[in-house]
C-alpha cells in the first residue's frame, strides 16, 4: 500500500512533535502499532499527539479511552480520523 500525502504529513508531525531524533518518515510503517509495540510511543506521547491534532487540525478528542485507542492504533487510523474530523 502506498503512503498518502496526509499520512506523510502525519509522520512528519509525529517525528517533530515527539522529538523522535533517530526516526525518519520511512521508519514509520502505516500499519504497525504506534504505541507500546511498533514505534513504541508511550502515554505522554499520546497526550502530546492529542494536543498536536488540536493545534494543527482543530480536532478535539473525546475523553473516551476506547475510541482514542482506535484512532491512535496506527498511522492509517490516525489519518482516517484527521480526514473525517479536520476543521480546516
Amino acid at each position: 500500500m502506498t503512503t498518502t500525502a496526509l499520512e506523510h504529513e502525519l509522520k512528519e508531525m509525529i517525528i517533530e512533535t515527539l522529538e523522535l531524533e533517530d526516526v525518519t518518515p520511512a521508519d514509520i510503517d502505516p500499519d504497525e502499532p504506534l504505541f507500546v509495540e511498533g514505534l513504541g510511543l508511550d502515554s505522554i506521547d499520546a497526550l502530546e499527539l492529542g494536543l498536536a491534532l488540536q493545534k494543527r487540525y482543530g480536532i478535539t478528542l473525546e475523553s473516551d479511552a476506547e475510541s482514542s485507542r482506535q484512532h491512535f492504533a496506527n498511522l492509517r487510523s490516525l489519518a482516517a480520523l484527521v480526514e473525517a474530523r479536520r476543521v480546516s
Binding site: L18, E19, I44, D45, L47, E48, L51, Q54, K55
Partner: peptide
C-alpha cells in the same frame, strides 16, 4: 496556550 504534556512532565 495549551501546555505540552511532555515538557510539563
Amino acid at each position: 496556550e495549551p501546555l505540552s504534556p511532555a515538557r510539563f512532565g
